[in-house]
Amino acid sequence: MKYSHNSERIERWITRVVVLFFVLITIYPIVFVTINSLKSTSDFYANVWALPSSIHWSNYSEAWFDAKIGQYFSNSSIVVVSAVLIISVFGVMAGYALGRLNLPYAEAILLFFLAMKMVPHESLVMPLYLMLSRMGLIGEHISLVLPYAGWGLPIAVYILKNYFQTIPNSLLEAARIDGASEWLSFRKIMVPLAMPAIATVVIFNFVSLWGELLWATVALSTATMKTLPLGIIVFQSEFATDWGPLSAAICMVMLPLVLVFLFMQKYFVQGITAGANKG
């Protein structure tokens, strides 16, 4: 068969239909939950498929206040923001040291960091719990922030080190000739230039920590301070068949992720690629 304009068009339409089918399968569950989060209970039982007869916002307030999603939301925000902040600051420092300062054994140190990333979390959780409980830290914010930061750092250092190495030397030379100290040129030249890589680190870690459950279950099992994924479990067992507020809760957990992703997907995908390559 010879190539023709017609067969090109047919191919294009077949592929479009295939993609649209899977787009539908991907997006429909999410749309379905969003629609149901706006329905009253009677609306819901009348017809699961239908659009809400009137927009019913009370599911959201019920989930936020009665089921304490609001409180879990702020707990999660405190923990995740602190961890991401630590990862970025320590990561920038270590990435700069390994990438620009010609330290002896820099490659070996990076390899050690990445090897630490390869350790499966399942075999860390229990010993870490024992360590932190001996120090009396279990149940505190710090018992989440510290491990999250330590686990996120290897990939962050890797991304930032690679980025610092792409910044041309001439900039640093110029600063040095002008008499800038190492510290000054690090803070005033290198850190601002590394902003795109820092954004990748921030977004990638925010998205992966927002829903972390395994360690949170262990570290906060008895605490009153619960993060969102844990709160969702409490919700699930207390409000099992209350679909409206449950759907509203699902939507509220997803919202920050969807927003971050839509506006900064480029950075997130870069993080996944780097993480996948070395993780």
Binding site: F90, M93, A97, L103, M116, L124, L146
Partner: peptide, 25 residues
Amino acid sequence: RNIIFGILLLAPAAAAIIATTLLPV
């Protein structure tokens, strides 16, 4: 001087990784 500066920059990240991964493992 560079090496001392580098070690100071590296220390916090290394300490966090050692405390949360190497010691537990």
